[in-house]
């Protein structure tokens, strides 16, 4: 029993408190903020506040309080949006990074609620679900120790590990629970090729969800006509998604499942016309510290070779 507990503690420590580079956490900060800014400025969420009163008629006060939404004040909402934009820019630039992360995380919680509250209090899949959790997690950590002006050079530390793992966990959860949801709501029969065939057919037949462009709208009927492709799609939809929960904790899982997920999103985009804007956030799994060392190492080597070539010319 004691050995088992000791083993669990060891696994926990390795997962969340291994020495980690400050650069990887700071890169996550920039990626998450850039993505949130991109989505926020690609919508007009405050305009929702100006909808006629009938749109808000079925929304209870508890739901409004949950997101602090008071309909009918678009001017205030635009002010909130621009404060959020300013905070996100500060997050990217590393200006008061922890405070900026905290402010933008809380304000995005409100704005995400406002976007859909008139019909649902659950604004998932719009782009801010992971951003809110990630920005707040960043605000609790030393996320500004790199990628900002005047940042001191710091040694790898467990202080940079747990927040990065938690953010990676939030993103991994989207895949993991997507697989689990299919099993809980439908059962193992979700994986049946016939189920996937019907989904592909539906997305190719519903002209209101078709994207314009030559690359769209051909893949779905082709998939639907191939039993084996439908079977592979079913496998991806459940098994590969469930396995994704390993990515925060396993380098091997990251190397296989992160490119695999990117490929999955491209296929889903071209077959079902579904664009999951969080695909950009997959960059938080990149080991930026290793990449920078590798690149600067190569550049250093190239310089040495140039000097050697000059001396011998």
């Amino acid at each position: 029993m004691t050995t088992a507990i000791a083993r669990l503690q060891e696994i926990w420590l390795r997962a969340f408190f291994s020495p980690q580079s400050a650069l990887n956490l700071a890169a996550a900060r920039v990626i998450i903020a850039f993505h949130a800014l991109w989505v926020l400025l690609s919508r007009d969420i405050p305009a929702t506040s100006a909808l006629p009163k009938e749109f808000w008629a079925n929304i209870g006060s508890a739901e409004r309080w949950r997101y602090l939404v008071v309909p009918g004040h678009p001017g205030v909402e635009y002010a909130v949006q621009w404060i959020t934009v300013a905070a996100l820019v500060c997050v990217i630039l590393g200006l008061l990074p922890r405070l900026s992360c905290f402010v933008s995380g809380l304000l995005l919680y409100h704005l995400a609620g406002l976007e859909t509250l008139y019909w649902t209090a659950n604004p998932f899949q719009r782009g801010f679900t992971i951003s809110v959790l990630a920005l707040l997690t960043l605000s609790f950590s030393r996320c500004g120790d790199a990628l900002r002006l005047g940042a001191p050079e710091v040694a790898p530390s467990p202080q940079y590990c747990w927040p990065l793992r938690l953010i990676q966990f939030h993103l991994a959860n989207a895949y993991f629970l997507s697989g689990i949801s299919k099993l809980l709501r439908v059962g193992i029969s979700w994986l049946e090729p016939q189920n996937l065939r019907e989904w592909f057919l539906l997305f190719s037949q519903q002209d209101q969800v078709i994207r314009e462009g030559f690359m769209f709208n051909n893949l779905a009927p082709w998939f639907a006509d191939h039993y084996i492709l439908c079977a592979i799609a079913g496998f991806f939809g459940v098994v590969a998604n469930i396995c994704f929960i390993a990515t925060p904790f396993s380098r091997s899982a990251r190397r296989i499942l992160v490119p695999d997920a990117a490929f999955f999103h491209v296929i889903v985009l071209f077959s079902m016309n579904i664009f999951w804007n969080n695909i950009i956030q997959l960059l938080i799994y990149v080991n930026w510290s290793w990449l920078v060392e590798r690149l600067t190492g190569r550049i250093g080597l190239q310089r040495k070779l140039d000097v050697w070539a000059q001396r011998n010319s």
Partner: peptide, 28 residues
């Protein structure tokens, strides 16, 4: 964070921003 995330997912009770992520989790 882990307990809440998994509790939401395994009970399929939405608690945004802890989401159940039901991406086409149904039958046509």
């Amino acid at each position: 964070t882990i307990v809440v995330s998994f509790a939401v997912g395994f009970t399929q009770r939405e608690n945004w921003p802890f989401s159940t992520w039901p991406f086409i989790a149904g039958r046509v």
